[in-house]
């Protein structure tokens, strides 16, 4: 009984909720920012509908910068900016801007790749029907790339789980924060084990629902 009593169940519950909250909010922003960014990358790329290599190169470079900075460094580098955007660099609220800044470029690249997988013939056929670029994107490209985009969402969500854990280091809250405070600083291995199990469950659930979604959208 001592074992169970020593574990801060209430804090674990709260931390789990925080992790889910961070994941949900940052994933939403990532989708809203990353999807258009990915589409823009695709469309302005070589031999694509809105080919514009100068624009593409600048955008691509910006994406690469954000992607090449290790997330833990991004967290610290962004702190001043985070305080402007979110009002604080602490807690759930303060973790959202760096999470989105880390995940959106990553997601955008995956979306770009998914769109490139769409058969050029389908784009050509849609063009031949007299479609506008907007109609091609919304009516043909995105529906055809949906399995790939669903897979991209899954991969990004799982990356975000590990990012949320990292944001614990700078007081971001959530399961990562708990693991560091109890598991690392106080050597409470049982709390560490429980957070790891909870994170594992979360990742597993995300992967399984993601796979299901991909399957649902695949008509090939």
């Amino acid at each position: 009984m001592d074992f169970v009593a020593n574990i801060p169940w209430a804090e674990i519950g709260e931390a789990s909720l925080d992790t889910l909250l961070m994941l949900g909010i940052s994933m939403s922003f990532t989708l809203v920012l990353g999807l258009p960014l990915g589409i823009l990358l695709f469309l302005t790329g070589r031999r694509q509908l809105l080919e514009h290599m100068a624009f593409y190169n600048v955008l691509s470079f910006a994406v690469n910068i954000l992607r090449s900075v290790p997330f833990i460094i991004l967290l610290i580098l962004m702190m001043p900016l985070t305080e402007i955007i979110a009002g604080t660099s602490l807690g759930v609220q303060g973790s959202i801007p760096p999470l989105v800044a880390g995940a959106a470029p990553f997601f955008a690249r995956l979306v770009e790749t998914a769109l490139r997988e769409v058969d050029r013939g389908i784009i050509e056929a849609t063009q031949a029907m007299g479609a506008t670029t907007r109609q091609i994107v919304l009516g043909a490209l995105i529906p055809e790339a949906l399995p790939g985009i669903a897979a991209a969402v899954t991969v990004t969500a799982i990356a975000l789980v590990s990012y949320t854990a990292m944001s614990g280091i700078i007081g971001g809250g959530g399961l990562g924060d708990l693991a560091i405070r109890y598991g690392y600083h106080r050597h409470q291995n049982d709390v560490m084990a429980i957070t790891v199990i909870l994170l594992l469950l979360l990742v597993q659930t995300l992967q399984m629902s993601g796979d299901k979604l991909v399957l649902r959208f695949t008509r090939r």
Binding site: M129, G130, E144, R219
Partner: peptide, 30 residues
């Protein structure tokens, strides 16, 4: 282009749409 139909060697149908939806697609575009 809406007055010129085109068919292709590899058909180029939208895999995410049914037969009915594929045929309706150019009408929606128009």
């Amino acid at each position: 282009r809406q007055k010129i139909g085109m068919i292709f060697q590899h058909f180029n149908l939208l895999s995410s749409r049914t037969v009915t939806q594929n045929i309706a697609f150019p009408l929606r575009i128009a």
